[in-house]
Design a protein around this nucleic acid. Structure first.
Lengths: 336, 336
DNA sequence: CCGCAAACTGGAAGCGCTTCCAGGAGAGGC
DNA sequence: GCCTCTCCTGGAAGCGCTTCCAGTTTGCGG
């Protein structure tokens, strides 16, 4: 290991050098009131000369604030994290935190061990707050967070309760937008490929589709449950073609599934968009790489991350920010 | 905010309840020697009854260990982080750390502010160690890390120095593998699309190509510098076709660039692999989504992350692990 | 039954910082 | 010139844990 790099000076040493008490020095560092000009100058000079930096841990112990917030992404399958969705969230959170003094602790709790580590982290007040995302139904995390009395912001709404603070995309509006677009194109036999209906987002996007259909006086023309993956979308599409060979449009609740649907349609010899129009949801890159490129509902995951972080910062600061629902918009490409 | 969730009990309270001194209780918690059976039992009982959990921060202050390690990903462009490469690293690191008591702090230092926050974090000993990845030439980070005397493990080797501890993929061997494969296919006019030659990986993969060509007694048949992106690969391919219309194979130093090359070849009316064979490098998903799917050199980025984390843990524990170069292997698909 | 080593115990001193509080100094008003 | 009010200041008490050390107890051989 490298030679001990000359131990960092402590506040005591700074105070001594500046010829003031430790408390005075502390006040200078924290920009607290009741510091005379002379004291401030002396301390600042000493700090500069000694290259002093306050010790994080000591400060954390005294203030009961760690300066760290967690982003928890529970998942059973490490592969799932490869979804660009999470990268976007992280980028958003990270850029927002860069404006603050908070650092980001990333918790990919997969195994039981990972989850208990997370639980422990929260209970031992290892972080000042937490952002939770992609929670599955019946996840015990919210309870633990609640019990620890930790500021928490949710990304998307969990299934069985509405958190005090959350940021969500307008999934309902987006799904309606998508369906309306298909209707506006003159399509009438519109099917839907849903995500897992055990997830809130799966349900809500499906509901948006239903509502749009009902408002237009149309009956849903086939529904198949996928799992947000491409393979699942392809399978769902095949099932739909089987049951409703005459469908002329499909709303898929994610681009991955839409991509699978497009592939399945091609394999079945149906042309997209002429015979069957397809609209997806997410617009996270893959939508541009299918052939034809996907018409889809755009949501800004980066903004979602950013807003989550900002909201958490506000909550930690004792404010009471309002939860947020971020707009979605239709992006027209080739598939519809 | 939720009602104060009954302040966590402290070690003093546990000790009092167990009828022993605080030091005895501490010894029990840390499995230190010199604890009688009776004492241990009493303390453990008290801990159980009171739901005691040691306070992280206090322990950190006393032991001078935070229980947190950082993963630093300096980058100028937030979009760059969307590369699945990083997700893989994170998954690897994260799964390895799950076996330990360490948590992961993610630093996406982009702006100047982000970098100075990171510097500050290191200097104030906010973490026990750091993993650095995707460093650009002349990045000041290594110096800062060195100066802070912090255990550090590098992912890939930076350009101008060989770190004490690193994990790298066998880029040289992989590039040779790829080129040899093209040669084995009977191709003789083999061009190369390189990454930025200002990066170590860009250089090394190019060197591998050169070495393989030289060993086979062939002359490089055109070289164009790309930037590891699809657009860059396409542009490079166009330049190569212009300069060497008779080329019959291309080794691209990344799948992104290979995908761009395949696209450019298609646009130029050349068939892949019949007229021009293409081999990429990375095998991070995109390789399977091109048409034809890419023959490429597989490297396990997840393993890279895992090994980095393990190595860092060892270094922190005072061991002297050996640096690691992880094997690569050729994956045959349709493009060569 | 004694003496000594080994095993255990609790007191106390940290780790480095924040913050409360009582007291001191300076300024301003009469 | 004295008194009060305001602004500063440093001492001291934490924050919750680890760890050194000196003292006490226990156990065992002689």
């Amino acid at each position: 290991m490298a030679a001990n790099p000359r131990r960092q000076p402590t506040l005591d040493e700074v105070a001594e050098r500046a010829g003031v008490s430790r408390s005075a020095a502390s006040r200078v560092i924290n920009n607290a009131p009741h510091v005379s000009r002379a004291t401030r100058d002396a301390v600042e000079k000493a700090i500069r000369e000694m290259g002093y930096l306050p010790n994080r841990t000591a400060r954390a112990l005294a203030t009961q604030q760690t300066g760290i917030v967690a982003l928890a992404i529970p998942h059973d399958d490490p592969e799932l994290f490869a979804d660009p969705f999470f990268a976007q969230v992280i980028v958003g959170v990270s850029t927002a935190l860069e404006e603050t003094d908070l650092h980001l602790l990333l918790c990919l709790a997969s195994s039981g061990r990972g989850r208990s580590r997370l639980t422990n982290l929260l209970r031992t007040r290892g972080v000042d707050g937490i952002m939770l995302i992609a929670l599955r139904e019946n996840d015990p995390l919210p309870d633990i967070v609640e019990q620890a009395g930790l500021p928490a912001v949710y990304g998307g709404r969990p299934v069985h309760f509405e958190p005090r603070w959350y940021v969500d995309s307008d999934n309902l509006g987006g799904a309606r937008l998508a369906t309306d677009h298909l209707i506006g194109l003159g399509r009438r036999r519109i099917a839907s490929i849903t995500g897992q209906l055990s997830t809130e987002v799966g349900r809500v996007r499906y509901r948006g589709y239903q509502e749009a259909m009902i408002i237009a006086g149309l009956a849903p023309h086939g529904t198949a449950e996928g799992d947000f993956t491409e393979a699942g979308g392809a399978a769902a599409m095949r099932a739909l073609l089987e049951a409703h060979p005459d469908l002329d449009a499909v709303f898929a609740a994610s681009d991955n599934m839409a991509a699978g649907a497009v592939r399945a349609l091609a394999e079945a010899g149906r042309s997209v968009p002429d015979e069957v129009a397809v609209v997806g949801f997410d617009d996270l890159g893959i939508a541009e790489r299918t052939d034809p490129a996907l018409t889809t509902v755009h949501q800004s995951i980066q903004s979602l991350g950013q807003e989550m972080a900002r909201m958490l910062v506000a909550v930690i600061a004792g404010q009471e920010p309002a939860s947020l629902i971020l707009p979605t918009r239709l992006v027209q490409r080739g598939s519809a």
